[in-house]
Amino acid sequence: MSSHFSELRPRGTFVVPVTTGPRGVVIEWVSFRPGHDGWAVYRSQQFDAEGSWLFLRFGLDRGIDTEPATVDGRPAAVARPNDELPQAFIEVREVLVSFKGGGVAARVLRDIPLTRIEAAVNQPDYRAKLIHRLPGPDVSQRPFEWDSPENSGWWFAHPHPYASPKITVEVPEGRGRPDEFYEAVARAYGYLNAVSTRPASEMAEANDVPVSTIHGWVKEARRRGFLPAGERSKGRGQ
C-alpha cells in the first residue's frame, strides 16, 4: 500500500480497531467515511494482501430519522427527538465486496467477520462517538458512491497502536455504586464481547467474582445507558 495514501486522513474520518496483535498493533480495523451516511471500509492484513475491499454501511437498530419530504411542492425534512438513541445498537445494513480474480471470491465472502466488526463498533467508547453520525432504521438504502482519488483518503486511514482497556474494575464499598463504576464495567465488557466467545466468564475470572455478578453489573450498565439495550453477544475469538 502506498505510504502516500496511508498518510491521508480527511477531517471526519473515524477509525475503529477490530482485532489487535502483539504490542497493540492493529491487524483489523474499520475506517468510517466522513459525513453521516454510515459507510465505512474494513481493512485487514489478509484483505490487503489479496487486494480485496470490503465496504459496509452501518446504521442504528432503532430511533426516528430525518427523512427528505415534499411539503407544498417544496423540498423539506421532518425530524422528531430521538428518545431511543441512547439504547440503539449499531448494526451492518449493507455490504459491498470488491476482489481481484484468482478464485478467491467464495473464501473472501466466507471470511467476512461481520459479527466481530459489529461487536467492535459497539464498544462503549466508539459507540458514543459514532451514534450521532449514523442513520436509523427508517432511512432508505443509500448506495455507495465511489470517491474521486483526492477524496478517498479515508479508505487508507490506519489506527494508531491500540491499548486494550482494563477488564478488572474497582468495586466501591456499599450498596449504591456510581455511574463511573458502570462506565468501567461497560468498557471492559464491551471490549471482551468484541474479542472473546465468553466475555462474561473471562471478566468474572479476572475480577474473581461469579459470572452471575458480571451479568448483574452488565444489566445495570445497560439500564444506565452505558451499553446499548439491544446489544447481542457477538464476540469471536482473535
Rank of each mutant, 00 (worst) to 15 (best):
S2K: 06
S3K: 08
F5A: 11
E7F: 13
E7N: 12
L8W: 03
L8T: 06
P10M: 11
G12H: 13
G12Y: 12
F14M: 08
V15K: 10
V16G: 12
V16T: 11
T20Q: 06
G21V: 03
G21D: 07
V25D: 01
E28A: 08
W29C: 10
W29A: 11
S31R: 03
F32G: 01
H36F: 00
G38C: 07
V41M: 15
Q45S: 09
F47M: 15
F47E: 09
A49S: 13
S52P: 05
W53T: 15
F55I: 01
R57V: 01
D61P: 11
D61W: 09
R62D: 05
R62C: 12
I64D: 11
D65L: 10
D65C: 07
D72H: 12
R74K: 12
A76C: 11
R80A: 05
R80E: 02
P81S: 05
D83A: 09
A88L: 07
R93Y: 01
V95W: 00
V95E: 00
S98L: 14
F99C: 10
F99M: 09
K100N: 05
A105I: 14
A106Y: 08
L114A: 06
T115P: 04
I117T: 04
A119D: 03
V121C: 07
R133M: 08
P137H: 02
V139Y: 00
S140G: 06
Q141V: 03
R142T: 10
P143Q: 01
F144A: 00
F144P: 01
E150G: 04
E150F: 14
N151E: 04
W154P: 03
F156S: 14
P165D: 09
E170V: 15
E170L: 15
P172A: 07
E173K: 15
P178N: 03
P178H: 01
P178T: 07
Y182V: 15
E183K: 13
E183D: 06
V185C: 07
V185T: 14
A186Y: 06
A188G: 15
G190A: 13
A194L: 10
T197C: 09
T197I: 13
A200F: 05
E205F: 09
A206W: 02
N207E: 03
S212Q: 10
T213S: 12
G216P: 12
K219C: 02
E220C: 12
R223M: 00
R224H: 05
R224C: 06
G225N: 06
F226Y: 09
G230H: 08
G230Q: 06
E231V: 15
R232S: 07
K234V: 08
K234Y: 04
R236T: 14
Q238D: 12
